[in-house]
């Protein structure tokens, strides 16, 4: 598990930034039984930026996410985090490097409280084992106390402070989306991957979330990569946009440039109906 941190094999030229990009995909392909979900995708996410990944249904956005977070194995290509290859690592190892994510269809244990859900994300920041927590040893208590600070801070950012002791199950969808976001923040990530953070929630909530994401980026020194359909949300929030279509990158630029790109317009107007839903 430990020997897999290798230097990036073929590093792309990066602009005159300090150090390698926070996240870099080079020639990434993901296949399912001969079908390419993602083919030869390369893009890099600059440290401290909010980077959006957009594209019609089936463009391979979620597959990219799953490739980065180690859910899918790559058929080819590399993924690097802060200059080190992570595509060979297991999902849990990748998470421990400080790459946190949310899920499109929420993954929240319904019988836990909001605070408990958020504490799950503290897992890899802590050490106490079953014995230590079971016997209530000082280390476990210490960790619990320090968790509480982080949870309260993240809850404040995501706007879920009032419901920390509520059970997750009965909460409305929009709130649970925020809980997912809050939980991801609890991991103290360096990169935050948001999978359709505003899908299915109303404009007010969406605006609040946009604000929260920006605040989190500023205050917690985050890099954000997000997949989203809501163009309004993406265009107001993102510093850079990568557009995928049929598993390939068709544009990678600033929001304004992307908006004016004929290929992107064609992709959104033309092919949407024909695309098979995949992700």
């Amino acid at each position: 598990m430990t020997a897999l941190r290798q230097p990036l094999a073929h590093r792309r030229q990066t602009p005159a930034m300090s150090g390698p990009p926070e996240l870099e995909l080079s020639g990434v392909s993901v296949r399912f039984g001969g079908v390419n979900a993602v083919s030869q995708v390369s893009f890099s996410v600059t440290r401290g930026s909010i980077h959006a990944l957009i594209g019609p249904n089936g463009a391979g956005k979620s597959s990219c996410f799953n490739a980065i977070t180690g859910v899918y194995r790559l058929a080819e290509g590399t993924v690097a985090h802060q200059g080190e290859r992570i595509d060979q690592l297991r999902a849990a190892r990748i998470a421990r490097r400080g790459i946190a994510r949310t899920f499109q269809n929420l993954v929240l244990p319904e019988n836990l409280t909001v605070a408990e859900c958020m504490r799950v994300a503290r897992h890899h920041r802590n050490r106490a084992g079953f014995l230590a927590t079971g016997l209530g040893l000082p280390r476990a208590r210490r960790e619990e106390r320090s968790d509480r600070t982080v949870i309260e801070r993240s809850a404040e950012l995501a706007g879920v402070t009032d419901i920390l002791d509520e059970r997750v199950g009965p909460l409305p969808y929009g709130i649970r989306k925020r809980v997912e976001f809050a939980r991801a923040l609890c991991a103290d990530p360096s990169v935050l991957l948001l999978d359709e953070p505003v899908a299915g929630i109303n404009d007010t909530e969406s605006a609040q979330l946009a604000h929260a994401v920006r605040r989190a980026r500023d205050e917690a020194d985050l890099t954000v990569l997000l997949v989203e359909h809501d163009m309004n949300f993406v265009m107001t929030l993102a510093d850079r946009v990568t557009v995928l279509q049929s598993g390939r990158v068709i544009a990678d630029a600033k929001p304004d440039e992307v908006r004016a790109d004929p290929a992107v317009i064609a992709a959104y107007l033309g092919d949407e109906v024909e695309e098979a839903p995949r992700d």
Partner: peptide, 26 residues
């Protein structure tokens, strides 16, 4: 205490979604 503690929460998470648990470093 175990169930409410770090390991217990990890078990809860794993029960709901193994992929989700792995994404949280479990």
């Amino acid at each position: 205490r175990m169930v409410a503690g770090r390991g217990g929460l990890a078990l809860h998470m794993m029960r709901d979604s193994e992929i989700g648990a792995a994404a949280m470093g479990i």
